[in-house]
Amino acid sequence: MEASKVIHAIYTDDDVLMSAVKTVKAEKYHIEDVFTPFPVHGLDKAMGLAPTRLAITAFLYGAVGLAVATVMMNYIMIQDWPQDIGGKPSFSFLENMPAFVPIMFELTVFFSAHLMVITFYMRSKIWPFKKAENPDPRTTDDHFLMEIAVHNNEESLTNLLKDTGAVEINIVNKDEDAH
């Protein structure tokens, strides 16, 4: 496979970066990625990223947690070994349900929170022993890096990026650092 070339434009300001992203998008270039030290609000919209669906997964995981709690307590307290505790016999789920509300709530939150976070880690590919992929260590300090694929248009792209206020423009062979 031919080595793919990318251009790395580095910025030192979030507002400059935002206008640069808009300019580059307006010129119909495809932005591969932007690395920033902190969340720049509105950047995802400017880049044209689809909204995340993690909140929806959280809701679904919560529903799973609620179902698990209900089934578990129904089996343990009502089906498997019904008891008469303090004069309150547990022979019907509905009648005993009020005592189960705290744990139904806790398990809903437990499932929702943990499974959502695990989904986030999986989708963003972050976990222990994962190697960081930000091309420049300064992108966790105060630098912003825009990565654009090059297809025989180095010259025009460099000139465009220079005009947007990039302080450094590097051309990188991406496959070189893939080993």
């Binding site: 720049v40 909140a55 190697k131 960081a132």
Partner: peptide, 21 residues
């Protein structure tokens, strides 16, 4: 740091996760 790289998409998810949490 779990190999955090600070991609725009990661930040978008990060903020959503923080809000939902």
């Amino acid at each position: 740091s779990f190999g955090w790289s600070g991609r725009a998409k990661d930040w978008q998810r990060f903020e959503e996760v923080s809000l939902v949490l």
